[in-house]
Design a protein around this nucleic acid. Structure first.
Length: 264
DNA sequence: TTCCAGGCGTATC
DNA sequence: GATACGCATGGA
């Protein structure tokens, strides 16, 4: 990882990153395009404006400490994504998908934030998911903790206009706040056990559970199957994923998802 | 207007 | 265990 401090900014050199592909591909819902090659957003409550292209990026008004403690992890900067692309190149479809989106990285989001976000994602579209989360954060002035949301009711959350999903988020908050569902434990558990634990929450099924494990816990074996991936599997991989994707299905899923979603 | 959206709970068989 | 169906809301 190569970077330098320049005043209040961090200059990051990262060949395997394209901001639009990584921040606007449906894995995170808190980033907005605020200028040319510029995105502003949050990791929980830490704000950032990042801009750049062609391997050189500026992280505005941050510190080296925050960069090292938050953003290196969030952007998974210690991982060499060219290695994933090299491994996947033995499969024809994955090769095309990686070639189509050379700058995708798997973000390491907060588990609780991912849980809330993906509960809101069900039977919903990305602009609306972003709107709901934006109203959530601006209402509380921060991303609300499980303790805070556990005290709400569907009526008090009506300002979110999140429809039937409000009661699911409240159930998630109550179970996390009480310890009935332990997100920290899920991070350590084997994937099948963690999935069972997460699915104790109303409104969390296999798809949302796998999204939480992939995007919020960086479990690379997680493989969220939505309508797009289901279609891709039927078309390209009727006999299952190729050998080269085993062990990092979640990363492969990102490339495939972005590829097929933009084909039509 | 009608259709659909990164699913899931519930009822029914 | 498999298979329909409803669900709140808003954008296209």
């Amino acid at each position: 990882m190569k970077y330098e401090v320049m005043g209040n900014d961090i200059i990051l050199y990262q060949p395997d990153l394209i901001l639009s592909e990584t921040l606007d591909c449906g894995q995170a819902f808190r980033w907005e395009l605020t200028g040319e090659n510029t995105y502003s957003g949050y990791c929980i409550d830490t704000p950032l404006t990042i801009s750049g292209s062609d391997g050189r990026f500026v992280l505005k008004d941050t510190s080296e400490e925050i960069f090292l403690n938050v953003w290196v992890n969030y952007f998974d900067l210690e991982t060499d994504y060219s290695e994933y692309k090299r491994i996947y190149s033995s499969d024809e479809t994955l090769l095309k998908a990686c070639d189509y989106s050379k700058g995708i990285r798997l973000l390491k989001q907060d588990a609780w934030e991912a849980l809330v976000s993906y509960i809101f994602s069900q039977h919903n579209n990305i602009p609306r998911i972003k709107g709901i989360i934006s109203r959530l954060v601006s209402h509380y002035g921060c991303f609300p903790t499980a303790d805070v949301l556990a005290k709400e009711t569907p009526e008090t959350l009506s300002f979110l206009r999140s429809g039937f999903r409000a009661k699911y988020v409240i159930d998630a908050a109550q179970k996390v706040a009480s310890g009935e569902v332990d997100l920290e434990k899920c991070k350590i558990l084997q994937i099948d056990e963690a999935r069972q634990e997460l699915m104790k929450i109303k409104g969390v099924g296999p798809k949302v559970a796998d999204c939480v494990m992939l995007y919020g816990m960086h479990k690379l074996e997680a493989f969220p199957v939505d309508v797009w991936i289901k279609r891709a599997m039927e078309n390209y991989y009727p006999n299952g994923l190729p050998e080269c994707a085993l062990g990092s299905q979640g990363v492969a899923q990102l490339y495939i998802f972005n590829y097929i979603r933009n084909l039509e």
